[in-house]
Design a binder for these strands. Sequence first.
DNA 1: GGGTGTCTACTCGGATAGCTAGTGTCCGAGTGAACAAGG
DNA 2: CCTTGTTCACTCGGACACTAGCTATCCGAGTAGACACCC
Lengths: 159, 159
Amino acid sequence: MSEGVEWALHSCLNLTWLDSDEAMTAARLAAFYELPAAYLNKQLQALARAGILASTSGPRGGFRLARPPEQITLLDVVTAIEGPGEAFRCEEILRKGPGGREDADYRKACVVSQAMRRAELTWRKELAGQTLADIKATVERRHPRAPASARDWFASRRP
Amino acid sequence: MSEGVEWALHSCLNLTWLDSDEAMTAARLAAFYELPAAYLNKQLQALARAGILASTSGPRGGFRLARPPEQITLLDVVTAIEGPGEAFRCEEILRKGPGGREDADYRKACVVSQAMRRAELTWRKELAGQTLADIKATVERRHPRAPASARDWFASRRP
DNA sequence: GGGTGTCTACTCGGATAGCTAGTGTCCGAGTGAACAAGG
DNA sequence: CCTTGTTCACTCGGACACTAGCTATCCGAGTAGACACCC
């Protein structure tokens, strides 16, 4: 799995602690974790294309959450970065086998494919069951000073 | 996920239909699905290193299951090919952040990492709950002629 | 005929290239704010 | 003082190199069977 998923999740989490009308620069989000700014920008672009973030150009521009954290699941973020394809992609090798039929859809018929798909479905379901708001709440419960600390850091680094 | 996982799973399934004392050549297993023989051989080597297959060299040599299908889970095969590392590898970017501690283990402490790890655990659990024997039984129930058909094909292609 | 040594063909095993996709960087288009000038 | 036009710094967005890991291939080490030869 791509490294950008971790960056995207933490960046989205940081955005939940901001005023929703305020936009955050990719450069500042990157500086928070000492990440390469240009590359994080690329990942945030993907999130914007997926409708998770809203981006505005020019001065005072940047990224902000496109919808409330309750409506952003971890699966949304992962899918935006990794793409919609499944991790286990059935290439239907049964078709090339002796009893293979050209018209059959082995993604559905193949038992191996089904088993792998079912496992991946539980993974997706687990990720879809956790929203950004849940993560935010858990972090705030365990580390109550984290949000204010992050806000202060971003405020102190304001240009 | 690597393409070899699909090949490995189907090859192991074919091996369940063989007499346990008979070894199957990588070349013949590859010919069954028209796969590149040398590359499949590489994947089977990984399965052998993991203790899933037993390999014997020389004439009448090849691969066979190292233990009964009931004791080989899908997770075993996936892990053998993909390696033991997790798909989401937490790089602990929190350590580089403002409140980061050098001594903390963010793979355990980070809420994001926990959520991703939990999802991946359900995936692993689902894969670990399915053995090669289960797959074999399901295939034989849905396509009763499949085992004999495969056996005949391998027999007809015996050098 | 039976035993034995050699030979050969066959198989795995690891070392070796090629290629796609993830990683990282850069510069340009667009934009909104700030500023200066004029009414 | 207020309005308006211009300028300009700032930001995203996509286009361009670089790297790592997956894909694919090849040849060598080892082995088990077959064969020929000798007793």
